[in-house]
Amino acid sequence: MITPQLLISGVIFGLSIGSIYFLLAIGLSLCFGLMRIISLDQLLYYSIGANITYSVNLLSGNMWWGVLAGMAVAALASFAVERVIFLRIYARDPTFSMITSFGILIGGIGIIKYFWGVVPRPVEVPTLLQVSIFGTEVPVYRLIVIAIAAVVYIGIWLFLHRTIVGKAIRAAIEDVEHVEGLGINVSRLFTLTFIIAGALSGLAGGLHAPLIMVDPTMGLEMLAFVFMVVIIGGLGSIKGTLVSALVIGQVVSLGSIIYAPMAQMAPFVIMLLVLLIKPTGLYGSPVFKR
């Protein structure tokens, strides 16, 4: 039977899962919006973030240092990948970048296997505190995850609307050539966006680590969910990504309370329904430049 307690903890659980989805999908969505690439390698930075968090936590005993280190390493890795690989393929079709980034993802998984092995490892939750919300005990850590995602969303919004570099990025999402025509070096914007995306994916991995098991292929397991979030929200839309991440989070969480296999199947059905009505997702723009 579904009790109010179960419902409240289900909603909180869904919000925290949705937060992780959001942090991961926002990178993919931004990269598509600006550079017109499908960057599957974001899932590699997610795995890197989680694995670094595991190791640093093991060494220092503090998971938050791990999350920070994971973010930093993920940002570095994404910077290297952008400079060495993506720089050469921006001009080409988005599906081309998808194949290439799949190669990066698989190759990266190989590297992670080399360093960390294939055995799934747990990461301790940094705080076991519970707070009571309407009489339901809720783990504080999940609330922290939700808060961090909210801060990131506000931060990205402020960055894009209040800083000149953010405005340039918004302008370049509309039209890259016109931004270049003004005398702005767009390739720097690309690099910056890619690093931000990579760091956020790393953050998602680090935050997710205590909630699941850390292993090399964890990125592949997230792949379908992140895809569904981005597709339902519409590629390139930040607002759409947020909305659909929250919806999918709830569907996964509440769905599994009702009937466990729903957690995996329901998002897919929702995606098909959305695509049936609008082939470019809820907030995706129908025009496709370049």
């Binding site: 405005k167 005398g183 702005i184």
Partner: peptide
């Protein structure tokens, strides 16, 4: 192309595509 523009030779394309999602002020800011 951005260095050419910075140097002082600027191209204004035919499509009259200002950045639609940005305000006039933000367009000028860029």
């Amino acid at each position: 192309s951005y260095d050419v523009a910075k140097f002082g030779v600027k191209y204004i394309p035919q499509d009259k595509k200002v950045f639609f999602d940005l305000t006039v002020r933000e367009n000028l800011e860029l």
